[in-house]
Design a protein around this nucleic acid. Sequence first.
DNA 1: CCTCGTAGGTGTATGCCGTACGCCAAAACT
DNA 2: AGTTTTGGCGTACGGCATACACCTACGAGG
Lengths: 214, 214
Amino acid sequence: MIDRDGLPALSMRTVAAELDRRTMALYRYVEDREELECLVVDLALGGVLDRAVDSAADPAVDPAVDSAVDPVRSAVPSAGPRVRLLALLELMREAVGAHPGVLPLAVRHHGGCPPALRWRERLLEALADAGLDAPRRAAALHALVSYVIGALELEHQAAVAAAPGGASVPETFPLLAAALAARATADPAQAFADGARTVLDGLGLGPGPGPGLG
Amino acid sequence: MIDRDGLPALSMRTVAAELDRRTMALYRYVEDREELECLVVDLALGGVLDRAVDSAADPAVDPAVDSAVDPVRSAVPSAGPRVRLLALLELMREAVGAHPGVLPLAVRHHGGCPPALRWRERLLEALADAGLDAPRRAAALHALVSYVIGALELEHQAAVAAAPGGASVPETFPLLAAALAARATADPAQAFADGARTVLDGLGLGPGPGPGLG
DNA sequence: CCTCGTAGGTGTATGCCGTACGCCAAAACT
DNA sequence: AGTTTTGGCGTACGGCATACACCTACGAGG
């Protein structure tokens, strides 16, 4: 529904209508709108995010094949923590990219959303594999999650504000105008990945051989 | 008003009541609620953010004294781009920290908010002083702004969700529980600054002598 | 001086929204 | 058979943003 009609079109009434029920019937299954939003986030993020978690613990898939192709699906640490982290970050981008309108809800409810919690645990596992101790892991998680949230939020707003014709930055800000113009022509996925690599670099998780600087 | 009664208490009716007017009188000055929100963000961020911009261009203050104390107020580049950038990032944190309830509005409207645009221009100036060319500046701005938005959003949610008693992360996520506990006891300002330094490190703006690696 | 446009304000009304409350049918369990 | 539980319905309330029409006071132009 959000993909079709946008986030403001999500209301108790519209959801009930979609199910051919009469609004108040929803309250048999959900405490209030807040809880319904949580379920929406679960649904939207779960499908994509749990690709990584499920397949890693699922012996039905052949690990010898998959791990060579997709570093996220791999449970073995040979892929390198940096590559795994980068893949997890892009996985989150992919998840919200599949349903862009859900992003405001996802940001507000990610603390109570199981798929998002699983994702963060996976992030911490990769950080532990990289040799970071607990305090550094906490700091690294904070930096990475902050970047992801902010970057997705920026991308979301850029997509929304692009419709009318331009925010028309005054010529008082030449550097900003140039930077925004450059960003408008660039590939969002590339920009996201570049920023993610920057944060990983700052964490000392360079593209080098491995956790050599513990 | 938002500081006193919270963000949901902001409505056309309540604002009009605060001014002893009759709701519809507001529409003489404002197109719609959206525009009022922009004014709120201007007001909330402007006071703190423009400290840096105004004083840098204001010859009334003695630069010899101020620049030695506060690197943000200094127009001379001798303070080092890294220190100036860090100070600008913390300035933004301070601005929204003065009115925490405004953060959702600030995130949504920062694209059309003059103080926020000035702040970004200042960021780009410091990045240029650090020797970054235009494409690198754009990438660096994206990384820094993303981090700031995400970090403030996380801090905001932590402050809100702390009331009931805990989100109670299931014991299925041991690493996450430990990281969240560590984060709960730590100083938010320190955590913000640590993350900011991490991003700056990743951008190659290390604490070294200067822009030596252009 | 008088008129008249307009800035500022009011009152009313519409159509959304979330949701509290109470009633009702069918099904499930005792 | 009776009773509880489950799922659903209708109504109603208060709050929201805002469209529309109306009024009032005031300042400038004739």
